[in-house]
Amino acid sequence: MNGSLRTILAASIAAMAMTGVARAADVPIVPYVEPVPVGGWYLRGYIGMSNQQLGKLDNVLFTPGTVEFLDSGGFDAAPIYGIGVGYEFNEWFRADLTGEYRGKASFTALDRYDFNGDNIWDGSNDYSANKYEWLLMANAYVDLGTWWGITPYVGGGIGASRNTISNFQDINTPNGGVAYAPSASKWNFAWALHAGAGWEVTQNVTVDLGYRYVDLGDGETGDIVGYNGLNTVNNPMIFDSLTSHDVHLGVRYAFQ
């Protein structure tokens, strides 16, 4: 290879190298961004209010056709306070365990009765009581996607509710009678359905606004006795099928 050919070849290689460098300089440099981790443990706390319903009042002394409820019974709203710990498995599924105190809710109901079967009402019973619960739940949620930092979700839960009925009174105004019952507590199977949305304030903090339908099972009083302390049969008042529509506001803190 003569000197001229070597010179031409070297010049060509140099030109190709410079072209490659120029093209490489035109490629934008994208900085590396570390991905935000998904999953991990979180703590939650919440407060709310309950809107509770009763299936019916029942008692061994209620015989068919002798008692008619003029007011089947209702509860006042009551506060809810809960805490929990959970785990986010991925961007769409998480679960938690919660413990909750459901504050005292006042209860009233009114019936009338015909014990003689002569179609003449013999008297009435004006009932009053208080109710509160301790609720333990295991919950699972499906997060449905995130838009503008807001993530709607649905879920369900199962657990146990310790229902306490206290301050029960039965006032028979027409006949001047009063009966009462001591407080009593009962554990029941409980289940719930959830819906709500979380707002991601920071990478670690999410504000949660939720709705829940919860079935708390039953409740009952102690043995009802007359004002004179007499009673011929064990007859606690049964609060059958306690349910509630709850609204709560809380915060979740994720350890990421």
Rank of each mutant, 00 (worst) to 15 (best):
residue 12 S to G: 15
residue 251 V to N: 12
residue 186 K to V: 08
residue 75 F to Y: 13
residue 81 Y to L: 08
residue 173 T to I: 15
residue 192 A to E: 10
residue 146 T to Y: 00
residue 64 P to Y: 04
residue 121 W to A: 06
residue 41 W to C: 02
residue 74 G to W: 09
residue 141 Y to W: 02
residue 223 D to E: 04
residue 34 E to G: 05
residue 99 G to A: 09
residue 208 D to W: 06
residue 25 A to Q: 06
residue 35 P to F: 11
residue 125 N to H: 15
residue 52 Q to P: 11
residue 30 V to I: 11
residue 129 A to K: 12
residue 36 V to D: 03
residue 96 D to Y: 01
residue 25 A to S: 04
residue 12 S to P: 14
residue 36 V to E: 05
residue 137 M to H: 01
residue 30 V to M: 10
residue 179 A to V: 09
residue 182 P to V: 09
residue 20 G to Y: 12
residue 100 E to P: 02
residue 166 S to M: 06
residue 207 V to Y: 03
residue 235 N to M: 06
residue 23 R to H: 12
residue 255 F to V: 01
residue 125 N to C: 15
residue 130 N to S: 08
residue 37 P to E: 13
residue 19 T to V: 13
residue 133 E to T: 06
residue 75 F to P: 14
residue 30 V to L: 11
residue 133 E to Y: 00
residue 76 D to F: 12
residue 28 P to S: 01
residue 31 P to D: 09
residue 226 G to A: 14
residue 53 Q to H: 15
residue 174 P to V: 09
residue 187 W to Q: 12
residue 4 S to F: 12
residue 232 T to Q: 15
residue 183 S to R: 14
residue 113 Y to F: 07
residue 215 D to M: 00
residue 177 G to P: 15
residue 90 N to M: 03
residue 153 Y to I: 03
residue 124 S to D: 13
residue 171 I to D: 13
residue 242 L to F: 02
residue 10 A to D: 10
residue 156 G to V: 00
residue 18 M to L: 10
residue 63 T to V: 14
residue 191 W to M: 11
residue 221 T to D: 01
residue 212 R to S: 09
residue 52 Q to M: 09
residue 174 P to M: 08
residue 176 G to L: 13
residue 7 T to W: 14
residue 249 L to Q: 04
residue 56 K to D: 04
residue 61 L to G: 14
residue 181 A to N: 08
residue 206 T to N: 05
residue 84 G to L: 12
residue 83 I to W: 04
residue 49 M to T: 12
residue 28 P to E: 04
residue 206 T to S: 08
residue 104 K to T: 15
residue 250 G to D: 07
residue 63 T to Y: 13
residue 212 R to V: 13
residue 80 I to F: 00
residue 191 W to S: 10
residue 150 I to M: 06
residue 42 Y to H: 11
residue 55 G to Q: 06
residue 175 N to P: 13
residue 194 H to R: 08
residue 59 N to W: 01
residue 84 G to C: 14
residue 185 S to N: 00
residue 187 W to Y: 10
residue 235 N to E: 08
residue 213 Y to C: 09
residue 247 V to N: 11
residue 53 Q to T: 15
residue 220 E to L: 10
residue 24 A to Q: 02
residue 102 R to S: 05
residue 79 P to L: 00
residue 132 Y to F: 12
residue 92 W to D: 00
residue 245 H to K: 06
residue 244 S to V: 07
residue 130 N to F: 07
residue 155 G to D: 07
residue 250 G to T: 05
residue 98 T to I: 06
residue 38 V to E: 01
residue 19 T to I: 11
residue 232 T to K: 10
residue 210 G to F: 05
residue 93 F to G: 01
residue 81 Y to V: 07
residue 210 G to Q: 09
residue 127 Y to I: 03
residue 211 Y to S: 01
residue 118 D to M: 03
residue 115 F to R: 09
residue 34 E to Y: 06
residue 99 G to V: 04
residue 214 V to I: 09
residue 135 L to S: 15
residue 180 Y to V: 08
residue 84 G to P: 12
residue 205 V to L: 08
residue 41 W to A: 03
